[in-house]
Design a protein around this nucleic acid. Structure first.
Ligand code: FES
Ligand code: FES
Lengths: 163, 163
DNA sequence: ATAAATCTGATTGTTTTAGTCAAGTATTTT
DNA sequence: AAAATACTTGACTAAAACAATCAGATTTAT
């Protein structure tokens, strides 16, 4: 699994837009930068991914900035993390040189797989709107049943190196 | 959060001891190395932490090796991860230079905190024994209530750098 | 025109991770 | 006693991932 500053900052930025974007006015990266203490350059880099992921819409030129591409209630943390990070990964197989046995699954495969689903269910259950509404108790969420997880927990695509 | 090869290999190694250690005979690192495709040197490094964490007992000399220090049912994945990795961390505050506002908590603090607890509840609910028994459905676990989590989700202790 | 913004590609420095190496100690077997 | 087995320890290195920056280009409101 990978939760880095990129993921954190991504969520912070999206939350910021939702909290401070008023009446059809887009939010500038400069404003986000000041409020969230994230450098402008870094935000620019982040918003490439967020835009590519379809989470924000941009308006260029003076008076421009960013909107959320859809209502905050329909943007999940999982969406953001996946937009800025590479896909969540918890199992190591497929491209493993050591540790995971090629062909047959190792004894811990199901553990990591279950863990990935567990984490994903959380990230998928929390929307940006919920983060903004302080009333929601994030510690007692209704999670989707495991069956409904569209195996969004993907493996990382990487070329296995042969030594 | 941090789940690295070290954590994976740590769990694999402990599981291996439980699966292959028979009748009072300790398991050698060489054996684990062969079965789990982990280099001996790396295992040596890993078992420092596992031993320091009180998860395994060692016997030196020929015929020596490692035992589990307590029954597999009483060793959780959380125990292993915490023994080999540094403590799990999901919030970024305390030592953050950017992103997280010093003094007041940032808008996403509760999110990351809840996420940390969510992950920990899983790691804490799964024992090595459960991983070995293939019948257990890791996707539908009984998790401890959040109140019982002894805030084992700790922050990383690190000196904040001043630039 | 000018300025305010987003956009884009590339690059850099730092930290973390993964893995190795060499030397040492305890214990059993021969 | 010697040799072999296996854990123990400290230090070290290479490679990858991460965080962050920079320079320049493009769009558009005024
Ligand atoms: S995680 Fe080891 S085989 Fe999938
Ligand atoms: S995570 Fe931002 S203040 Fe704690």
């Amino acid at each position: 699994m990978r939760l880095t500053s990129k993921g954190r900052y991504g969520v912070s930025a999206i939350v910021d837009i939702n909290n401070h974007g008023k009446e059809g006015k887009p939010v500038t990266l400069a404003a986000i930068s000041e409020r969230q203490f994230i450098s402008l350059s870094y935000l620019e880099q982040l918003f490439r991914s967020l835009r590519a992921g379809g989470l924000v819409r941009s308006v260029r030129g003076p008076g421009g900035g960013y909107f959320l591409a859809r209502p905050a209630s329909e943007i999940t943390i999982a969406n953001v993390i996946q937009a800025v990070n590479e896909p969540i990964r918890t199992t190591l197989c497929e491209n493993a040189v050591r540790g995971c046995h090629r062909g047959k699954r190792c004894d811990t495969h199901e553990l990591w797989d279950a863990m990935g689903k567990h984490i994903y269910r959380f990230l998928d259950a929390v929307s940006i709107e919920m983060v903004c509404q302080k009333e929601v108790d994030l510690n007692n969420l209704e999670l989707k049943p495991v069956e409904d997880i569209v195996t969004e927990v993907r493996m990382e695509q990487k070329i296995a190196k042969v030594s």
